[in-house]
Simulated scan of single mutants.
Amino acid sequence: MRTRKLATLLASTALAATTTLVAGAAPAGAAGPCGSSYSRVGVYAVSKDGTRTGTLEVYYSSSTGKNCALTYGYGAYANTVSWKRVTISRGDGSGESTDAGDYKIYAGPVYVSAPGQCIDVGATVPAWTIRELNNVHCG
């Protein structure tokens, strides 16, 4: 009986240690910028006159029915403070959400609930380079 309790205790301790190691091994950003249920559905270059200045990323969560978007700097604007903007709305313009400012990494995330609808997304990096997409990622 004593051996069985010891075996159970050792097995429980090993399981707890393994669980802690696995949970601790995952990088902090493993869930993604929008959350754990979101998958990236689009990546778009923000550019002007052939020079890329940013990246617009769009994500979708089938469990929430929401889309999410972020704008990152690229090239000279990556990891440097510069004007970045991201906007998302339903294809009819309703439910608009915008984040803009002088950011080092990215603007956003911004979200819109648009199950079964198209969305509009837009990005700016820096202040004079804009990318707009209308009626995309229709669900």
Rank of each mutant, 00 (worst) to 15 (best):
N67Y: 15
E57P: 00
V43M: 11
G35C: 09
S36A: 15
G93H: 07
K84S: 09
S37L: 04
T71M: 09
N79S: 13
A78T: 00
A26L: 15
G42P: 00
L56A: 07
G50M: 12
S97M: 11
Y38R: 02
R85F: 11
E96V: 12
G75A: 09
K48C: 01
R90G: 01
S39E: 08
G50D: 09
G24Q: 13
K66C: 05
T87A: 12
W83V: 00
G75K: 07
C68D: 03
S97L: 02
N67R: 13
T80G: 11
G73I: 03
P33Y: 07
P27Y: 08
N79H: 11
L70Y: 03
R40N: 07
A30F: 13
V46W: 14
A45I: 00
A30H: 12
R85G: 01
V81E: 14
G32R: 08
R85M: 15
T53V: 07
W83R: 12
V86R: 07
V81W: 11
G32S: 09
D49F: 13
A78H: 12
A26Q: 14
G24A: 14
V86M: 10
V81C: 05
V43K: 12
S82Q: 07
L70A: 03
I88R: 09
P33E: 03
E96K: 15
A31C: 07
G32L: 04
Y38M: 03
P27L: 08
Y44Q: 09
G95P: 04
G95T: 06
S62W: 06
Y77S: 02
G73H: 10
V86I: 08
V43Q: 14
G32D: 06
S89G: 08
R90E: 14
L70M: 13
Y59V: 00
C68A: 05
G50T: 11
A45E: 14
Y60P: 00
T71N: 06
N67C: 04
S89F: 11
G75L: 04
K66H: 12
V86D: 08
P27H: 08
S82R: 07
W83H: 14
N79G: 02
S63R: 06
Y60R: 10
G73C: 05
W83F: 15
D92Y: 05
G91S: 13
V86C: 10
G65W: 01
G65F: 06
N79T: 05
Y60C: 01
G93I: 08
G35R: 09
S89Y: 12
T98G: 02
V86P: 06
S82P: 02
T53W: 06
E57R: 13
V43L: 13
G29I: 00
S47T: 05
D99W: 00
